[in-house]
Amino acid sequence: MVNQQLTTMKQPELGKVIQQRRLSKGMTQEELVERCNINVRTIQRIEAGEVTPRAYTVRTIMEVLEIPMSIETEEKKDKSIPPLFSYLDKRQLWWAGLTGIVYFILSSFEILWNMALMSGEEVQQPEYFVMLKVAVLVTYAGFAYGFWLLGKRTGNQVLQLGAVFLILVNAVLIGVDIYYGKGMASEDIWIGVFEVVAFGISMIPFSLGLIMSKKQLGQPYLVVGALGLVNAFIFISVILVLIGVLTGAAFDIACIYLLFQQSQKQKEESFVEAAVQ
């Protein structure tokens, strides 16, 4: 007897169950399509909750994904489909988002000091300059870790590498700032140009990783990733760097939102997981 609770489940819960089961088995949509002999667009729309499939289609997908076909069999097996993110992941994503807020505040203060020190005016470097730089790097690493975790759980290596690359590049840039201090004024303008271009380049793989997350994590990742690419090329252009400060702030805020949103989504996934049982 087919599990009637699953075959009669309504969208979007049904699509979430199918997606979670597919991801837990490490299967791509293309692989599922080949084994089910169903159009790839159909699978995409089912997982997105856009259409309600026929009972025959649901049974075919259940068989391929090895979702228990009878209540008796289900009781003998583990009753839960492994979620994409664990409870610990949820907490880590929440803390990464909170760390991102701290980073945003510190980096805003840091940008103001960098602009003042490079203005050529007689501005004294504050005593806490090095401490501020280190705090920015540490909080940024915690912030980027959240996206490294997202990449790991979804199998998105581009996002993982992009997060690590961002941390490494920022570590180098902050090291340069600490080394030169106030000495990096107008006569060292090329150092500033190097920093701006390097930062812009470092954003490209990370932004591409966000765009690639759209299929598994949703449309917001595509939008934020596109914003990141625009911001990257603004910095690389150098002449638009002042605009980049504003778009960069918007990008950081959007990334913080993604982390908090993903941590809250776990509540929905727990509901879906319970519906399969």
Rank of each mutant, 00 (worst) to 15 (best):
Q5G: 10
L6M: 11
T8Q: 11
T8W: 09
T8C: 08
Q11K: 11
E13M: 13
E13S: 11
K16H: 15
K16L: 09
Q20D: 15
R21P: 03
K25W: 12
L32D: 05
V33N: 14
E34L: 13
N37D: 14
R41N: 11
R45S: 10
R45M: 09
G49R: 02
G49Q: 02
V51L: 06
T52C: 13
T52W: 10
Y56V: 12
T57W: 03
T57G: 01
I61N: 04
V64W: 00
L65T: 03
E66M: 10
M69E: 13
S70A: 07
I71Y: 11
E75L: 14
K77C: 07
L84W: 01
F85R: 00
D89V: 00
G97Y: 00
F104E: 10
S108L: 10
I111P: 09
M115A: 12
M115C: 12
A116P: 07
L117W: 04
L117A: 07
S119T: 08
V123P: 06
P126V: 05
P126Q: 03
V130W: 08
V130R: 07
M131A: 13
L132R: 04
A135Y: 01
T139M: 09
T139R: 04
T139S: 09
A141Y: 05
G142R: 03
F143G: 05
Y145A: 08
G146T: 00
W148M: 14
G151S: 02
G155F: 05
V158E: 10
Q160I: 08
L161P: 07
A163N: 03
F165E: 11
I167W: 05
I167K: 07
N170T: 06
G175R: 04
G175N: 06
I191N: 04
I191M: 09
G192C: 05
V193L: 08
V196N: 08
G200M: 00
S207I: 01
S207C: 03
S213V: 01
K214R: 11
K214Q: 12
Q216M: 15
Q216S: 12
Q216V: 12
L217Q: 01
Y221P: 01
V223S: 06
V223Y: 08
V223L: 12
V224E: 01
L227E: 04
L227T: 04
V230S: 09
N231G: 08
A232Q: 05
F233H: 03
I236G: 05
I239A: 15
L242F: 15
L242I: 11
I243Q: 12
G244D: 02
D252V: 10
I256R: 02
L258G: 00
Q262E: 10
S263I: 00
S263W: 00
Q264G: 07
K265C: 00
E269G: 00
S270V: 14
E273T: 13
V276R: 14
